[in-house]
Design a binder for these strands. Structure first.
Lengths: 200, 200
DNA sequence: CAAATTTTGTATTCCAAAGTACAGAAAGAG
DNA sequence: CTCTTTCTGTACTTTGGAATACAAAATTTG
């Protein structure tokens, strides 16, 4: 019995995340967010009370979506453990490739939020989301490494937890290195060199 | 024939960098900068015209200092090429260790500035400093790798440019991963695993 | 010791960006 | 068709922090 929302909430969260992941929290103005979402100020504030709140929701949605993508790759049992990890790296590099074709780097909400202790302190939910997301992704990586140890694509002695942390660290590094204009091809090669210790 | 400055400029730049490397540009207030430097607003503005200018100078000093430290390690001819790179990683991890003992991560002006396209756009000098710094550090790393190829500590086939980029990428990743509370010991182990491809 | 000049402290101004108010338009329910 | 409710657009208010003004204090040199 009332006028329904003319925009899709998820779509707005994705548009917001696209801004935040490139510019970070502080350097994304509510103006930019409106522009990116194709919404007016009041619609945005009506749906999401504040920039802070919008950030939290965008981060949550972003983390879930990302994690979903990575889970799809890392649990694909048609591939060996090592192949899954290589495919994940390929996917990250591809993200950078399309961002590059748009004239910027892909950025990463996770890196931005992690690197900013003040942001995490401002809203405890942010730290919680980041922790949960990290934990989930490490678990997925550990499972893939264990699978690799069994199928023979990963050396037997490999510590799953540390291998997972290495892959995650390398990915964060890629996000940063991508900002300095390195080609996706070079990015791909160094990432594969970085996980050499995980390949049988 | 005039009252001399009561503070040391370098010391102020270092205090400023210590704030910027943790909080980033936007989330460091001029208030914090005054506090950290032990200076009053007017002294700060008198010496460095603006927050922007202070940031640029702090970044320049920070990059030079960091590069100097790294150069000392990477050109130490009493070590093999591989040993130099391992020692560099140890030094980065130690930085994180002391930061951790102070209750935070070390952060990195380079990572913050790189991840923020708006900041680089605001003042062309920032992009210039970052480019020069990256170039210098990659050159040092390449030299160490080449030295390693000669002394036999690094595999013959290794591409120096890509090896250098890998080490640099890993270090950036360490800066990020350190923010999530991983112990310095774990950080050290995964970093060494990450450069496995560079070790003979 | 006094002049010259710069530093320091407090208070103020200024600005950009976050957030709010409210009138008018749109859409479903009866 | 009309009533109700929610959405949309414009203009306004608020706020946090960067930057400035200026008077008083401090210090070196001649």
């Amino acid at each position: 019995m009332a006028r329904p929302r003319a925009f899709d909430e998820k779509t707005v969260l994705e548009a917001a995340a696209a801004q935040f992941r490139v510019h970070g929290y502080a350097d994304t103005s509510t103006e930019q967010l409106c522009e990116a979402a194709g919404l007016r100020r009041s619609s945005l504030y009506n749906a999401f009370t504040s920039k802070d709140e919008l950030f939290v929701q965008a981060l949550e949605h972003y983390a879930d979506t990302m994690c979903g993508h990575q889970a799809a790759i890392l649990t694909d049992t048609s591939l060996t453990g090592a192949e899954r990890i290589k495919k994940l790296i390929g996917a990250i590099v591809d993200e950078e490739r399309v961002a590059r074709s748009e004239g910027h780097a892909a950025g990463c909400m996770g890196v931005h939020a992690l690197m900013n202790p003040d942001l995490r302190a401002r809203d405890e939910r942010i730290a919680r989301i980041l922790d949960r997301d990290l934990r989930k992704r490490l678990d997925l990586l550990e499972d893939a490494i264990r699978a690799g140890r069994i199928d023979g694509s990963v050396p037997e002695g490999t510590d799953a937890a540390e291998g997972a942390l290495l892959v995650n660290t390398l990915i964060a590094g890629l996000r940063v290195t991508a900002q300095s204009g390195v080609t996706p091809e070079a990015l791909h090669r160094i990432a594969l060199d970085g996980i050499r210790s995980l390949l049988a």
